[in-house]
Design a protein around this nucleic acid. Structure first.
Lengths: 192, 192
DNA sequence: GTTAATTGATACTTCAGTGTCGCAGTTCTG
DNA sequence: CAGAACTGCGACACTGAAGTATCAATTAAC
């Protein structure tokens, strides 16, 4: 890396990444110019910070995944009973996933850096699920990889859940986390 | 509609749609030419059948959704106990969803026709889930819209499940359907 | 077997997006 | 405050894809 960016340049980078998320969420094929405009900058400045479109996409992916990791670690997934930790992690992840909807759901740029971050996220998740299994929260014969996949899917679905109009409580992070975990553990069938 | 297409033209249309699915699955921004080539045709022929790119995307969406409806109705979702019907529907849907991965997961073209088909699919699904609920398969207080969302998500996840290498049985449609339904009904927690 | 539809080949136009450059004005940093 | 870094502006070249037109050759349909 060269020298550190100047403060205003750093601000530009953040503005671009956030604008890219917003714009691409509505049109995955949006142009650099649309992104620049949404960031309150010129197309040229975007090109100065990110050599080409691909580089921007990669930076976006890395940034979002890093925030996801931070959110997970901030929830201290290794302390407290697994159910409590799972709940805390879910709430934190939901918040980040809500902010970076596009970037975190469209796994476009498959760079080494991004892949490494995903592996770290997966590792965190599986470790937590493994602990949950040992604490009797999950079935002893549950396939943890499949459980992880289902967990991710439920997180996405909870965010895309409509009906925020009639039931504003459904948008509440706590309510969403509860729904996700409840569904993950018990499904939709009747309780024993 | 004008007069019916000649047999060879009809074949071309099918080839184009199938090629589009294959090509777009790997690169959502693929050009008309790439699609044409994959279909064994010229770019010009594609333009003759579909005025523009958008029209092709819409036709693709309608075609795939129609096949999904056919697959559901073919499973006779209103006969037999709900669990059996759910199983049959799941197997059939899985087959179609596997063939039209791209089209059925990327809800791009939002035309009136495509939206109407989705509503029909949703109606079928919710009706089946409602019957399942009345038969005691689902919890009496289960939110059927959420259940439907989770069901769709599980179908997608089952298709994207890796590990076909070590465990070829995981690719078996019956095994996949069993996994989806089991997870939908009971989640990953221990059984009562 | 005759007619009408379909297709491929070639060529052309149009257009949007990408990426670059130099220069002038502004803003941060030490 | 002085130098360095950053941004905006205008202009430019380049690429790739979309879409159109005509004509000859082929192929299905009745």
């Amino acid at each position: 890396m060269g020298r550190a960016l100047r403060a205003d340049a750093e601000r530009s980078v953040r503005a671009i990444l956030e604008a890219a998320e917003r714009v691409l969420a509505q049109d995955a094929g949006a142009s650099m110019e649309q992104i620049a405009e949404a960031a309150g900058l010129t197309r040229i400045t975007v090109h100065r910070r990110f050599a080409n479109r691909q580089a921007l996409l990669e930076a976006l992916a890395v940034s979002a995944k890093q925030q996801l990791i931070d959110a997970i670690e901030e929830a201290r997934p290794d302390s407290a009973p697994a159910l409590v930790a799972l709940y805390r992690v879910t709430v934190n992840v939901m918040r980040v996933k809500n902010t970076w909807r596009y970037t975190l759901s469209h796994a476009t740029a498959h760079t080494a850096a991004a892949a490494a971050l995903w592996e770290e996220i997966d590792a965190h998740t599986v470790q937590l699920l493994d602990r949950a299994q040992h604490e009797g929260l999950l079935a002893p014969d549950a396939d943890l990889e499949w459980t992880r996949q289902v967990y991710y899917a439920l997180l996405s679905e909870a965010l895309n859940r409509p009906g925020a109009d009639r039931d504003p409580a459904a948008q509440d992070p706590d309510a969403q986390a509860t729904l996700v975990i409840d569904t993950l553990l018990h499904g939709a069938g009747p309780r024993g």
